[in-house]
Design a protein around this nucleic acid. Structure first.
Lengths: 223, 223
DNA sequence: ACTATATAGTGTGTCTATGACACAAAAGCA
DNA sequence: TGCTTTTGTGTCATAGACACACTATATAGT
C-alpha cells in the first residue's frame, strides 16, 4: 500500500488582551497563498508525532515545554488540493507571559488572532480550531488545563477572567472562589498586587495537585 | 519529506456473556506471528480514514453501520518492528445481537476476548485497548453511547447490566431507573418479557434523543 | 482632606441531585 | 401451595449548585 505524507498542525492558544487567541502564520506557498494557516509541517522519518509538534511549536513561537495534547487526525483525501496529506492536529496551551510573540501588527507574517474574529483559514484549519475550542472548554470543566494559561503568580480576578474568556460567559466571583478553595488547588503567596486603582488583590500560586484527581473526585469546574 | 505508511486499527467492543469483549485476530504474518492483534490494515490512497476503519470492520465482522469514533493516532517510530507505520485507532461499539461472530472456540483465528482476560497483544495494541476502555467509560457518563451496545428492545436489567459491565462496578437498581426516567431517554414498548423464572420485565426502547443534549444539560450518568 | 470611583473580598439560603437503603408483586417450579 | 427468582417501587439525609449584595481598601481628582 502506498505511503502517505503525514503532517502535524498545532492549534496554539493563549489568553492575551482579554481574549482567547490562536497563533496563525500566513502562507507563502501554494495552495492558499496569502491565507492564514495553523503552524505545522511534515513529520520526519524517525520523529515521533509529538516531537514533530513540539518542533513546529518551537520554530513558530520559540517556546517549548508547553502543555500539548493530541486533538484529532484529519485525513480526508481532498483536504489538501495538491494531493492527499494526513494531518495529526495538536492543541497547545501557552501562558501569555511565557510567549515571546507579542500582539502584532496586521501586516505581520506570524501573529495571534482572537478566536472569535478569525480570517478565512487554509485547508481544514478552521475545523481544527473549532474542535480545539470544544476540547479545551470541555477539559476546563474537569481538569486543571486552565492553569497552563496562567503565569506562576496571579490574582483571583485574573484566573477567573481566563475561565470566562475560554468559556465565553461570565462567572460568579463568589462561587468561583469558593469552589477553587474547596478544591485546594491554589494557595496565597502572601503578596498582594496593586494594579492602578482599587483595593490590592492577594496573589496566588498553584499547588502541585495531581491532574487526574479532579475527575476521580467527580468534580465539575464550571462554576 | 518521505511519506509514511498509514494504517487504521479498530478496537471493536461488545457486551457478550456478561462481560465486555474485544474482537481480536490472530496474526498470520511476521512480525508477532501467532500473537493476537486488533483488526486493521493500510489506508488506501483515496480512502478517508473513517472509511478505512469501516471497511476493516466489515471485513472482520460482516457488519457496518456501527458506532465508530476516532480514538487516537499512534506514531512512535518503533511501534512496528518492520519500519515506521503510523496508526489511526478507532473505537467501535457493536450490539451483540447484530454481530454474526459468535463467542468462539479458543483455536479460532478471529474471536471475542473478554477485556479483563486479554492475551499478549501485538504492537502497541494493548495500549490501544486500554485507551479505548477509558474513553468508553468516560463517555458512558455524559453521552448515550451505552445505547449502541443494546438491542432495539431491552429490559432495564439488561441495560443496567451493560453499564455495570463497562464501568466494572455494580449500580443501584432504583437510582439507575430513577435517573434514566428522569432523563427521558427510554420509553416502554408496552410488552413484557418472560425469561424463565421470575416476574416478567417491562420492555423498553430508546427514544430519539439528541446525543449532545446530555452534556448541555450538565447531566452525569454514573448512578 | 475629602469625595468619587474602582476593585477585592466575603456568607447565606434555596433548590436539586445523589446515594443509601428494604420490601412487596408476579411469575416458575417442585 | 409454598419456595425461589426476578421485577418494581419511595424516602430520607447529605452534598453540590446557583443566585444574590454589601463592606473593605486602594487610587484619582478636586
Amino acid at each position: 500500500m502506498p505511503p502517505l505524507p503525514v503532517t502535524v498542525d498545532s492549534v496554539i492558544l493563549t489568553v492575551l488582551e482579554g481574549t482567547l487567541q490562536v497563533l496563525l502564520v500566513r502562507r507563502m506557498d501554494s495552495p492558499f497563498v496569502g491565507l492564514w494557516a495553523l503552524p505545522g509541517g511534515f513529520v520526519r522519518p524517525e520523529e515521533p508525532l509529538e516531537n514533530a509538534a513540539i518542533r513546529e511549536l518551537r520554530e513558530s513561537t520559540g517556546v517549548d515545554e508547553v502543555y500539548l495534547e493530541q486533538l484529532y487526525t484529519f485525513g480526508q483525501p481532498q483536504r489538501d488540493t495538491r494531493g492527499r496529506v494526513v494531518s495529526v492536529a495538536y492543541v497547545a496551551l501557552l501562558a501569555a507571559d511565557r510567549c515571546p510573540i507579542k500582539p502584532q501588527r496586521l501586516e505581520a507574517e506570524v501573529r495571534w488572532w482572537p478566536v472569535y474574529e478569525l480570517p478565512e483559514l487554509a485547508f481544514d484549519h478552521g475545523a481544527m480550531v473549532e474542535m480545539s475550542l470544544q476540547r479545551v472548554r470541555t477539559k476546563l470543566e474537569y481538569t486543571t488545563i486552565g492553569f497552563q494559561l496562567m503565569p506562576e503568580a496571579f490574582t483571583m480576578a485574573q484566573l477567573q477572567s481566563v475561565y470566562e474568556v475560554i468559556l465565553d460567559r461570565s462567572l460568579d466571583k463568589r462561587n468561583f472562589q469558593r469552589k477553587l478553595s474547596l478544591l485546594g488547588l491554589v494557595e496565597p503567596t502572601g503578596d498582594v498586587r496593586k494594579e492602578g486603582r482599587g483595593r490590592p488583590a492577594q496573589v496566588f500560586r498553584f499547588r502541585d495537585v495531581d491532574f487526574v484527581h479532579l475527575r476521580e473526585r467527580g468534580i465539575h469546574v464550571p462554576f
